[in-house]
Design a protein around this nucleic acid. Sequence first.
DNA 1: ACCATAGGTGTACGGCGTACACTCGTCAAG
DNA 2: CTTGACGAGTGTACGCCGTACACCTATGGT
Lengths: 227, 227
Amino acid sequence: MTPQEATRTQRIPLNRDRVLRAAVALADATGIDALSMRRLAQELGVVPMALYKHVANKEELLDGMVDAVVGEIDPPASGPDWQHVVRGRILSARRVLLRHPWAVRVIESRTGPTPAVLAYLDSMAGSFRDGGLSADLTHHVMHAMGSRLLGFSQELFDTSGPSGPPDPGLAARYPHIAELAATAAHDGGSTVGGGCDDQFEFEFALDLLLDGFESLRRQGWTSARKA
Amino acid sequence: MTPQEATRTQRIPLNRDRVLRAAVALADATGIDALSMRRLAQELGVVPMALYKHVANKEELLDGMVDAVVGEIDPPASGPDWQHVVRGRILSARRVLLRHPWAVRVIESRTGPTPAVLAYLDSMAGSFRDGGLSADLTHHVMHAMGSRLLGFSQELFDTSGPSGPPDPGLAARYPHIAELAATAAHDGGSTVGGGCDDQFEFEFALDLLLDGFESLRRQGWTSARKA
DNA sequence: ACCATAGGTGTACGGCGTACACTCGTCAAG
DNA sequence: CTTGACGAGTGTACGCCGTACACCTATGGT
C-alpha cells in the first residue's frame, strides 16, 4: 500500500464494452454532439488516449454504439401471421430508437451497415420470406420500408418545442400547413397535446405499407420484367 | 493605380448569395465533411472571418445551402390527376437531392424546417388537397410519406462501392440478405450492373403509397375517432 | 473635407481527433 | 528471485475546427 490509498479505488480495467456502454449513456444524457473522446474519457476517469486502446478511432466507437443499440431490439416473435411478426419487430425497433434519439443520425452517418444492423435486416428479410413473400418481392419490400425498417422515419417538421400561439403570419404564408396543424389540434383521436401523435402516424404508414405488401403477395406480384 | 495592379483584380464584393453558391459547389465537389469555413473562405479568395459578414455562423450557412438546394425543385405541374402531379414533384425533388448527395444529411440535421422547405411542404400539401384528399387524410399522408417527400429515402445498405466477389462467409451469416442480393443480381428488369436499381425501388414504394392514399380517399377514409 | 459605415483582415482562444513516445504493473520463463 | 516482454494507461504535441474581438480601409453622403 505504498501508493497513497491504492486499495480503495482499484479501478476495474477499462474494456471495450465499458467504453461503449459509457458512450451510449453519455450520448443519451447529453446528446451526440456533446460526445467527444475527451468528454467520454473524462466520464470514465481516464485520459483521452486511453480509449484508443479499446476502439481504433471515433468512427469505430460510433459503430460499436450502433451495434449496442441495435442489439436492444427484441428478437422476432414467432407466429403464423407475418404482418404481426414484422409489425411487432419494427415497433420494438422504434421503441429502442426513441430511447436513443441520437442513434438515427449516427446510423445514417455510417458508411456501411454494421454487423448487428446486417443481422437485424437479415432476420427481417427472413420474416417476410417465412410469410410467403417471394425473394423478388421481399427485396423490393425491404427497400420500400426504407428507414421505417429501423423503427424511425424522418419527422421533417418536428412539432415539439415551445409551441406557443401559432404565428398568424406563418399561417398566411403556409396556408395548407396551417390547415393540417389545425386539423391535428382539434381532433382528439390521433392527437396528444397540441402536436401530432407520432406513434399513430408511424403505425398509419406502417400498416398501409404492410397491407399493400400482403395484397401484392396474394396476387403473386412479380417485378415487371419487360424492358 | 498606386497599389500594384489594383485595377486587374477588382474583386466583386462577396455577398450572401455568392457565399451560398460557393458553399454548395464545394460540398458537391468535396463532400460535406470537407466543407469548413476556412476551406470555403480559401475557395473565395478571402480570409475566413470575412464570411461572417454575410452569414451569422456555420449553422446559418447550412440553412442557406438547404434553401438553395430546395429552391432547385421544380414547381408543381398542374393537371387533374393529383397522383401524377405529386409523383412528378417528388421525383423532381429526388433528382435534385441526387445532384447534392450531402443535402439529405444536412436537411436532417437542421433543428427546424427552413422557409424554403416549409414552402415546399406547403405546396405539396396543397397538391393533395386539390386532389380531393381531406385535410385529415392529407395530414396523415404527409407524415406517411416521411422522408420520401423530399425525394430520398434511406439506402440502409448502400450497394455501391467496390462490389468485388460476394463474400461467401457473409452469405453464410446473412442468408436472407444474400438471397435478396442474388435475386437482384440475376434479373435484368430492375437492375443495373451488380446492385439494385434505386430509382425502381424508390418509385415502387412511392406508387405503392400513392395508390394506397388514393384508395383511402375513394372510400372516404377518416382517422378512427373512437378512443 | 469630413466622417460614418460596411466589408475585409489578423490575431487569438478553446475544443476537437489522434500520432507518438513514455511509464508502470503484471506475469511467465529462466 | 530476477528479468524482460507486454498490454493498459499517460503526457505532450500537432493540425484542424468555429468564431470572438479589435483593427484597417475604401466608399459615399453631407
